[in-house]
Design a protein around this nucleic acid. Sequence first.
DNA 1: CCTAATCTTATTACCAAGTAACAATGAATA
DNA 2: TATTCATTGTTACTTGGTAATAAGATTAGG
Lengths: 191, 191
Amino acid sequence: MVLKRNRYKRERQQVMVSQLQENPFLTDEELAELLFVSVPTVRLDRLDLGIPELRVRTKDVAEQFYGQIRSLGAGELIGDILELDVGKRGITVLEVKKDMVFSKTKILRGHYLFAQANSLAVALINADVVLTGSASVRYLTPVFLKDKVVAYAEIVGQKGKSFVIKVNSKVGSAEVLRGRFTVVAKEMNDL
Amino acid sequence: MVLKRNRYKRERQQVMVSQLQENPFLTDEELAELLFVSVPTVRLDRLDLGIPELRVRTKDVAEQFYGQIRSLGAGELIGDILELDVGKRGITVLEVKKDMVFSKTKILRGHYLFAQANSLAVALINADVVLTGSASVRYLTPVFLKDKVVAYAEIVGQKGKSFVIKVNSKVGSAEVLRGRFTVVAKEMNDL
DNA sequence: CCTAATCTTATTACCAAGTAACAATGAATA
DNA sequence: TATTCATTGTTACTTGGTAATAAGATTAGG
């Protein structure tokens, strides 16, 4: 039976995976020492398991991090405009990408949904400077990787320079977020 | 005059720095192309400016990211941990960078503040999967470029698997955000 | 106009951490 | 015992560099 050999091999590979989960910055040489095998064996194991080399692993981690910061920062609007009637209502769509979800569950992280809604609310106001004053949101159902979130926003009230905007986000027909934003239009020289 | 040469050199180095700020994953070769100089010149410039090679840069980014989090799973937290007492309270700090602000006013965009608070609230809960159920936040004063936002979060209530967390964010002694998050802990197999 | 100082480019030897392909060795089992 | 798979070693090649040195280009200053 091949089992004994395979069992040993598999066990070792398991250990390797968990080692790398703990510390993705291990070289093949270091792994070889930890697992009491030669460097070529480590390479074969990685090949077996589809684990890329150290430098690729490092880059992946770095890019995930960087991408996250970036995607929150890119442009003034989170999501793509489908419709925008400034002063009244607007619709944007956000496609859920890999780096926006919790890795374990593939569920979209809350602040992305918030960011889409918030930035759309702000975009509805026709003024030089618009700041969010308060926000209240309810997350209704989880959103998953590759879902397309459509956010509908509408101005429902105004008192002077203060606006109230209601936002509804949906995936297909399922409501995923319901929110109410108060935003304030300010003049540049108010600051 | 040596100035002209230096000025040209300095200008190029300035450009290099800003290129790398935007994308730290550029090789010397790519930089050389962008700056219309040879690879050795790029190396000399990096040496001049104390900028490490690509692989070190990448690793730095990755480690900064990885080092602090660990148990939370990759990149789930916006801001850097100052204190984290899981199940009770936590403090993070977020430095406001150029790409987080409205370009006109240099005011931090609301969803960053929200993301910092929200992700800290989630981090306080010791469970495999934690989702935000609802959130209510008030933005009290604007936050500007280069400010350091310190977020204080504390669990103030619990009903079964549902937790209420209060978050206060400050810049110096000024309160900038006050929020209340309801988050729900779920088991993996609930989904 | 020519030279010295500074920039820029080229060249060479070296390194780490790999990939890819292949040969050689070992060990266990049917 | 023959075979089968795991393991190890070896070699040639790749990327993205460091470090050191030499040679060419530019230009300001005398």
